[in-house]
Design a protein around this nucleic acid. Structure first.
Length: 144
DNA sequence: GCCAACGTTGGC
DNA sequence: GCCAACGTTGGC
């Protein structure tokens, strides 16, 4: 099983929105990704993989955990390319639980153990990898 | 609102 | 295939 981190702007789609959707039994399609690296990360996801839910721009903190419940499939909100092929894809996710103590970007940057976290190193990547060690460390910092 | 980092586009 | 110009993201 692999670990990931997925960004969302909370004024567009927050972790509260995510939890409400899961409570209603609706999967969230992680649509709108238009970056090849991020798409490739989604293609590499397996069912049951876990991801941190990060609030970008507003809050700038990891606020919860989500789970992959459907493998990458065509993003219905994306246009086809000039050959009529699907280029962009998305996975479906559901909320698992919030972090008791959200972990801010400032805290992450001040933590030597997390200096290689892709969230920090590749700050513009919206779907990034998290190593096993980083995942365990961040869970602990988040009060789990 | 500014700017750094990075991806994409288009001219050559 | 290189590189300058431009657009976008996201932190500050």
């Amino acid at each position: 099983m692999a670990y990931w981190l997925m960004k969302s702007e909370p004024d567009v789609f927050s972790f509260d929105d995510m939890m409400a959707k899961t409570k209603r039994g609706e999967p969230e399609q992680w649509h709108g990704v238009r970056n090849y690296t991020a798409r490739n990360n989604m293609r590499a996801m397996a069912l049951g993989d876990l991801a941190f839910f990060y609030h970008s721009n507003i809050g700038k903190e990891i606020v919860g955990i989500i789970k992959v419940i459907a493998l990458a499939h065509p993003d219905s909100t994306a246009d086809l390319n000039d050959k009529g092929q699907v280029v962009w894809e998305c996975v479906d996710v559901e909320a698992v639980k919030p972090l008791p103590k959200p972990v801010t970007l400032a805290t992450i940057k001040a933590t030597p153990e997390l200096e290689n976290l892709e969230l920090v190193k590749l700050s513009r990547l919206s779907v990034s990898k998290v190593s096993d060690a980083e995942w365990a460390f961040l869970c602990k910092m988040g009060g789990l």
